[in-house]
Design a protein around this nucleic acid. Structure first.
Length: 269
DNA sequence: CCAAACCCCTGCATGC
DNA sequence: TGCATGCAGGGGTTTG
């Protein structure tokens, strides 16, 4: 569950394979709050084609002919391409009827996900107040050091702050901290320049590795092709009991309202 | 300016 | 067995 940047990237690539250039014939909305105004949403999208697929942070961006459809999957949002004869279940809230005879279905058990229709040209720099993409060259150790210097909050809270860097969620935050050997509660402004360099490397390496593997599958995540991610086999601390490095017990604390796993032996404060 | 608390939802675990 | 209770969690909003 919990699609983070690598999972969103996987969804983008998968949907691109499956529905690129497909036309939306019509849209059915079964739960209004996900799309805001369902009439505007439906009217706006009908007749347009999916032209280009991308991502900003954890937001999916579907470039259409006249608009961009923006989707945030939040906790449990998933897309499926299904035959219209396949019965709908009670967690499918939005259905796009496509001109290839299939349906793009949005399923979301907790109904936390959101969709919005925006102008075609987006200001991706300030989009939803997001900070830099993790692979953007401006996300470097100088940027990180300067940002962290003015934060006395726990380092993990800052990693989860999408205005610091876009796309990191609870799982990867734990893994990044494990990689640089820092405990989640350490005050952000105490991180040394050296550790800031390590942080940038860890963020990029962990996310890239996970994208490579097709995203994580902790709890229930599967891509829309139904392929389970394999990142979970790589988790050092998140949801773990024993540290794979030193064989000692993993501890769990709450930071910024999130369960945070770390190894007290391998990670320092 | 910043940070903490609250809200949205449902499935699942727990307790009696 | 069945019902009530409470918890997780991203990000927007509200409150301190």
């Amino acid at each position: 569950m919990m699609p983070e940047l690598p999972e969103v990237e996987t969804v983008v690539r998968t949907l691109e394979q499956q529905i690129s250039q497909c036309q939306i014939r019509s849209v059915r909305v079964y739960y209004d709050k996900i799309v805001g105004d369902p009439k505007r949403f439906t009217d706006c999208l009908s007749g347009q084609r999916f032209r280009y697929f991308s991502r900003r942070g954890k937001y999916l961006l579907f470039q259409l002919d006249r608009n961009t459809l923006v989707v945030h999957l939040r906790m449990e949002g998933k897309f499926y391409i299904q035959d219209p004869r396949e019965p709908l279940n009670r967690h499918i809230h939005v259905v796009f009827d496509l001109d290839n005879g299939m349906e793009l279905r949005y399923m979301d058990t907790r109904k936390f996900g959101r969709m919005e229709v925006l102008p075609k040209e987006l200001d991706l720099k300030n989009f939803h107040g997001l900070g830099p993409e993790p692979f953007d060259p401006i996300f470097d150790s100088e940027y990180v050091y300067a940002f962290l210097k003015r934060k006395k909050a726990p380092l993990k809270s800052v990693l989860l702050d999408q205005s610091f860097v876009a796309g990191i969620g609870n799982i990867y935050a734990d893994e990044i901290l494990a990689k640089i050997g820092i405990r989640p509660k350490m005050s952000a402004r105490r991180l040394s320049k050296k550790k800031c360099e390590a942080l940038v490397e860890a963020v990029q390496e962990i996310l890239a590795n996970s994208i490579e593997l097709g995203g994580t599958t902790i709890r229930s995540y599967t891509s829309s092709l139904g392929v389970a991610g394999r990142f979970q086999t790589k988790c050092m601390v998140h949801l773990q009991k024993i540290c794979p490095k030193c064989q000692r017990e993993i501890k769990m604390v709450r930071v910024a309202g999130r369960s945070s796993y770390y190894c007290p032996h391998c990670q320092k404060s």
